[in-house]
């Protein structure tokens, strides 16, 4: 995944079955953000893999005051990359089978 300066990682082990998974997001390189970023630490949230969109969560983070509107896209992309990796790994483990 492209280094957006915003890091997103699993906040819990993924058993491959959970519909909602806990993720943790933090800014590693504030210089890559367009808007003014007030250091807020790592933000943990739950993401419903099949129902929700990364962009929707990013917008909620903007509305909650974590990021400036101009950074919604970069935050959404960072979440999207991690979610895609989670789904890819799940598909691979299904294909690998018992």
């Amino acid at each position: 995944a492209e280094d957006t300066g915003v890091r997103v990682e699993l906040a819990e082990d993924d058993d491959g079955k959970k519909e909602a998974i806990a993720l943790k997001l933090w800014v590693e390189d504030p210089k890559k953000l367009k808007g003014k970023y007030k250091e807020s630490g790592a933000i943990e949230f739950t993401f419903e893999l099949e129902k929700e969109t990364p962009e929707g969560v990013a917008q909620e983070m903007v509305e909650s005051g974590f990021f400036h509107e101009s950074d919604a896209k970069i935050v959404g992309k960072s979440i999207r990359d991690r979610v895609a990796l989670i789904k890819w790994r799940r598909e691979r483990s299904v294909l690998a089978g018992p």
Binding site: W26, G41, E63, S64
Partner: peptide, 27 residues
């Protein structure tokens, strides 16, 4: 370390805690 919480109007809970130590880039 204590974790702060922000609940969005749509109901999602955001829990804020210190950035994982090992992941801090040297700025």
């Amino acid at each position: 370390s204590c974790a702060a919480q922000v609940v969005h109007s749509a109901g999602r809970r955001f829990i804020v805690s210190p950035v994982p130590e090992s992941r801090l880039r040297d700025q």
